[in-house]
Design a protein around this nucleic acid. Structure first.
Length: 877
DNA sequence: TCTCTGCGAAGAGGA
């Protein structure tokens, strides 16, 4: 009877050589705690080497172990040993680690470069997928090259040249496909998303043919056999496929450039398709390699290159490798050049790096829930929409599919229209699953688009590592590629400098005018502190206009698409001409699509549109993209800066000589999984370190005097004031409603409530009645908003309200306002929980209303906290 | 123990 053994390691023994009936074998004993009981596992044979990198506190999984007479366990010939099984290693990372562990590390830091072979490789892969789906070659090449126009243009290439190049590569694919289909029964699948729940590997295979992995390479290889790292990549997919039942014994590498090279210049084997056999030894090697990566990442340590026997002198990354090693004071097999960064910077790098990796671990934990939670648990946790009934499949002109399904029951979930999700046949791990985009999510109908057709039975939140990868490249650019002066001010060695500039006074008030002048005069950076309703967007627009008038090139960035579009709209309203909006079509608001930079079209024209634009607007995530990393700006203006982690802010400001951060550190901070260096924004750090570089906008145009009083006192030292008498004196009567019938100004409504799991039905009912009262009194539904701390309560209230009244979480309400706002506190019994601990969330909730603010909750529970007690007192007055 | 937005992916190159 074989068993799986899993638990944290407490001690790792040395590797010993033992003579057995089968000759000398290596073995290492590892102490683990299994279900609370300490025990040992003997790792035999090639698994013994795991002991070289295994450390106490790492999690160990040994499958198919045998139980020994002494109560311990030992590996068997069927065993697999997995280190840190919850850490998911990507197949391409296994590949680069095999080439050189340093290359793995450098790829992680630097991201994919904007270089022609990468762009071409992508296009050839897409054409490969198209051919597998039966599309015409010429059509596929023309369309895929067209889609990559922007990158091609930025690389200075022209369309016909790239088309010819891609066609030459595609010829190898076509020839091989024709050969393959002669026997008539090739079962093909292209681009398959695979995740393993036992060995901790994920990846996307180029293709599967008769159950065997096929990997496409757009380079040449004139050897008879595939390159080792290529074999490892294909073998990794084989391992993932084996877990689903069929054990592939052959892998195929398709080197498409082999048919394109001048045959007279190359000798050797020029056939593009190279097969190799996959045995258990190779699969175990993949797992051991993956284990080395997981062990290295356990404590976020840095590879030296000595872990492998790669030869540095032939490596194209040699120079980068040496520079990174030199600047970060790392050991590297290739050696190091240059002097190390100052200790403060290296410490900053290390602490942010660790924090980013901690975020990655949290994302891996989300992946794990795909298989540790049942579908119902997933649905209950709002992370999945389950029990869908497939209702249609339609092939789109671009070869992708539109899939529709019916929803038998209305349920809430985190998934929203426009999100990328994992669409599956009901089992996202071992069934068929594809990454898809939600195009419609009604009460009854779900619609997604995907590369491949999947029986649409379930949608899951797809935990993407995209944002952490972007943070790492931003950190890398910010410390290793930024100029010295920038780092002098970021690390507080120099004070930011300001020139002597005056600008035409355009804004509404003195503070706004001062802010614009300060920002224009900044030689390093300036900070604009904008409390609620103080006209941040207006000020940004005036600032950008002033900068553009001086002939400067501006990057306008913000965390959310919504904020980018708002700021862009204000800028266009001021008459700034020809701004460019970079981003995905689905993320950008309809009325800004006309200035969206299309990736397709004429390469030179698209590249020129970007490079000559005086204003480019994008999210911070897009600022870290390959395309925008190729661009430089005079000034980067960042909105919502207090909601950005430092690396997110770096992604934007790395692109410019100077920067202006606009935000309010008294409102919501960045959303991160764990407390640490990522939970403080760069805006907050700089405004604390250099208050003189900041201008606070102190006149607000939103709230009545009565409403703003509490926020001003509690969060802005009383400095926030109404901009004028009209703002201060506004009331419901201004809306022409029967004001006597409903509470005006600020009011508190006692509901003792019946709180369960972040909802309170009694409170929800009270809120709904109160909203009805406002509507009956003549307030338009569009002028009423309801705010609750939890999504569950938002859903509860939403079910009771007429359409047109916006109900949302505090977080999603930041940045907007309503004439009348009702806040549901859901704080019955006690104020436990982090949601109430962060007073900044309270500040946001209390500053959305213009004329009437009604607070609903249990005053006794709220009184437990001094600040909430003062709030109740203020509302009661 | 809760809040949550972003982002197409894809890797050639040598002795």
């Amino acid at each position: 009877m074989y068993v799986n053994v899993r638990g944290p390691v407490t001690a790792v023994g040395a590797i010993r050589t033992v003579s057995t009936a089968n000759g000398n074998r290596e073995v290492a004993d590892v102490s683990v705690v299994v279900d609370g009981e300490p025990t040992t596992v003997a790792l035999w044979g090639s698994w013994a080497e795991t002991a070289e990198y295994l450390e106490p506190e790492m999690e160990l999984l040994v499958t198919d172990a045998t139980e020994r007479s002494d109560g311990g366990y030992a590996t068997t010939s069927d065993s697999t040993v997995v280190v840190e099984p919850d850490f998911l290693v990507d197949v391409t990372d296994v590949r680069s680690w095999v080439q050189c562990p340093r290359m793995y590390y450098l790829n992680k830091l630097g991201g994919l470069p904007l270089k022609y072979p990468v762009t071409k490789g992508t296009i050839v892969h897409e054409v490969f997928g198209d051919l597998l789906r039966g599309r015409d070659l010429d059509e596929a090449v023309a369309e895929r090259v067209d889609e990559a126009a922007l990158e091609i243009g930025l690389l200075g290439r022209d369309r016909s040249e790239v088309e010819a190049d891609v066609r030459a590569n595609a010829a190898a694919i076509e020839g091989w496909l024709a050969q393959g289909t002669l026997d008539g029964e090739d079962a093909w699948r292209s681009e398959v998303t695979l995740i393993s729940e036992t060995v901790g590997i994920k990846g996307r295979a180029d293709a599967i043919r008769r159950g065997m992995p096929v990997e496409l390479k757009t380079g040449k290889n004139t050897n008879r056999s595939p390159r080792f790292q290529d074999k490892i990549q294909a073998a990794s997919y084989a391992l993932l496929l084996a877990e689903r039942g069929v054990e592939p014994d052959t892998g195929t590498l398709l080197y498409t450039k082999n048919t394109a090279v001048d045959r007279s210049e190359f000798s050797g084997d020029l056939s593009p398709a190279k097969e190799f056999s996959i045995g258990p030894g190779l699969l175990d090697f993949v797992v051991r390699t993956r284990n080395e990566i997981a062990a290295m990442e356990h404590d976020a340590s840095v590879p030296t290159g000595h872990e492998a026997d790669a030869k540095c002198e032939y490596c194209f990354e040699q120079d980068t490798c040496k520079v990174v090693a030199g600047r970060l004071d790392q050991e590297s097999k290739a050696g190091a050049v240059g002097s190390p960064l100052p200790a403060v910077e290296r410490e900053y790098f290390a602490s942010i790096y660790d924090a980013i990796e901690a975020e990655r671990a949290a994302i891996h934990e989300e992946y794990r829930k795909l298989w540790t939670q049942t579908p119902d648990e997933r649905a209950d946790a709002d992370r999945a929409v389950v029990d869908l009934e497939p209702a249609g499949r339609e092939e789109l002109p671009d070869g992708r599919y539109r899939l529709t399904a019916r929803r038998p029951a209305p349920v809430t979930s985190k998934i929203r229209e426009g999100d990328r999700v994992l669409a599956s046949d009901g089992d996202p791990v071992s069934g068929r699953a594809e990454i898809a985009r939600v195009t419609r999510l009604d009460v009854e109908v779900v619609e997604v688009t995907a590369d491949e057709p999947v029986p649409l039975r379930r949608l899951d939140v797809y935990p993407s590592e995209f944002s952490v990868d972007r943070m790492l490249t931003a950190l890398y650019d910010g410390l290793l590629r930024a100029d010295r002066r920038r780092k002098d001010v970021l690390f507080d060695r120099e004070d930011p400098a300001f020139g002597d500039e005056s600008v035409r006074p355009v804004p509404n008030n003195e503070a706004q005018n001062a802010a614009v002048e300060r920002a224009v005069a900044a030689e390093d950076f300036a900070l604009i502190h904008g409390p609620p309703g103080t006209g941040k967007t207006y000020t940004i627009a005036a600032l950008v206009e002033a900068l553009v008038d001086r002939g400067e090139r501006i990057l306008l960035a913000s965390f959310t698409n919504r904020a980018v579009d708002n700021a862009l709209e204000a800028i266009r309203d001021r008459g700034v001409e020809d701004p460019i909006r970079v981003g995905t079509e689905s993320g950008i608001r309809a009325d800004m699509q006309d200035v969206r930079l299309d990736r397709s079209g004429d390469p030179a024209a698209q590249a020129d549109a970007l490079e000559s634009a005086s204003v480019v607007a994008a999210t911070t995530a897009t600022c870290g993209s390959r395309v925008l990393r190729s661009q430089t700006f005079d000034v980067v203006v960042v909105d919502e800066a207090s909601q950005l982690t430092e690396p997110d802010a770096l992604a934007a400001i790395n692109r410019g000589d100077r920067f202006v951060l606009v935000g309010d550190h008294r409102q919501l901070p960045p959303v991160v999984q764990s407390e640490g260096p990522l939970s403080t924004s760069l805006f907050e750090r700089l405004i604390d370190a250099h208050p003189a570089a900041a201008v606070m906008l102190d006149r607000q145009y939103r709230m009545s005097q009565r409403i703003q009083a509490f926020s001003s006192r509690e969060f802005y030292d009383g400095a926030l004031r109404p901009a004028n008498a009209t703002v201060a004196a506004q009331s419901l009567a201004d809306l022409g409603v029967d004001a006597g019938r409903v509470p005006d100004g600020v009011s508190f409504h006692q509901v003792t409530g019946t709180q369960t799991a972040h909802t309170d039905a009694e409170e929800a009912a009270y809120v709904a009645d109160l909203v009805d009262d406002y509507l009956d009194a003549g307030v338009s539904p569009a002028d009423v908003g309801v705010i609750a701390p939890f999504r569950a309560q938002v859903a509860e209230i939403g079910r009771l309200l007429p359409s047109g009244v916006v109900v949302d979480t505090v977080d999603r309400f930041q940045g907007s306002s309503k004439e009348v706002v009702v806040v549901s506190f859901v704080a019955t019994g006690s104020l436990d929980g982090p949601i109430f601990e962060d007073a900044r969330r309270m500040n946001v909730a209390l500053t959305r209303a213009k004329k009437a603010l009604a607070l609903v909750g249990d005053r006794h529970a709220l009184a437990e906290n001094d600040r909430y007690a003062r709030m109740v007192e203020w509302a009661d007055r």
